[in-house]
């Protein structure tokens, strides 16, 4: 049995839903003319999760024409039951913030400014930095002659913002490189 507490919804699928209005029998009455159009009417519903604390309130993202138009709590999730705190309630403008970083940026040694760069260039540069550092510094044997294969001079910090899948990818890549200095927010 699938759950729904949204009587106006026709069936709840696996994540992506479609909001339909108009058959609810509402008499919009005198005030109709002064009430703005429901901005989520006809929007696709997508289930996401608030990116903050580990209550992990589920969120419905309302999407129209590939654009996010609103967010609110998912009433079906048994833990938040549709509710959110101040941060969760501000998700919409958090996603639409103009302040967001939009492109890879580069700051050269001793420079006083950022430069926009392409992903191609940026990933190439980073790959070379990692390899050069690793090739120079990796410790194959310790003082006792034991094999250690340890790349000590590069660290990784972060992040609990990553999904489980991303954590798995990051962990595997780092141990492949021989990284031991790795840590994230669980330790602060």
């Amino acid at each position: 049995m699938q759950s729904t507490r949204r009587s106006f919804l026709k069936g709840v699928g696996a994540g992506v839903l479609c909001l339909t209005l108009g058959q609810m029998g509402f008499d919009l009455g005198e005030a109709k003319a002064y009430v703005r159009k429901l901005k989520i009417e006809g929007a696709k519903e997508v289930i996401s999760i608030c990116p903050f604390c580990a209550v992990q309130c589920q969120i419905i993202g309302h999407v129209k024409d590939g654009k996010l138009v609103s967010t609110e709590g998912d009433p079906d999730y048994p833990i938040n039951e549709g509710s959110l705190c101040a941060k969760g309630a501000a998700l919409f403008t958090m996603y639409t913030s103009d302040h967001r970083l939009k492109k890879p940026m580069y700051r050269a040694p001793h420079s006083d400014h950022w430069e926009e760069k392409s992903w191609e260039w940026t990933l190439d540069q980073i790959a070379h930095r990692v390899k050069e550092t690793r090739d120079r510094d990796i410790i194959l044997k310790n003082d006792k002659g034991q094999t250690v294969n340890r790349f000590e001079t590069m660290f990784w910090m972060g992040t609990s913002h990553a999904s489980n899948e991303e954590c798995a990818v990051i962990h595997q890549a780092l141990r492949g490189l021989g990284v031991v200095h790795m840590d994230h927010q669980a330790r602060v």
Binding site: A54, S160, H161, A162, N164, C167, H171, A186
Partner: peptide, 20 residues
């Protein structure tokens, strides 16, 4: 637990002393 996926990121061990 505070951080968004700190349970998962601890389980998957983005931590020096553990493997997943």
């Amino acid at each position: 637990r505070g951080e968004p996926n700190v349970q998962g990121s601890t389980d998957h061990a983005l931590l020096y002393n553990n493997l997943p």
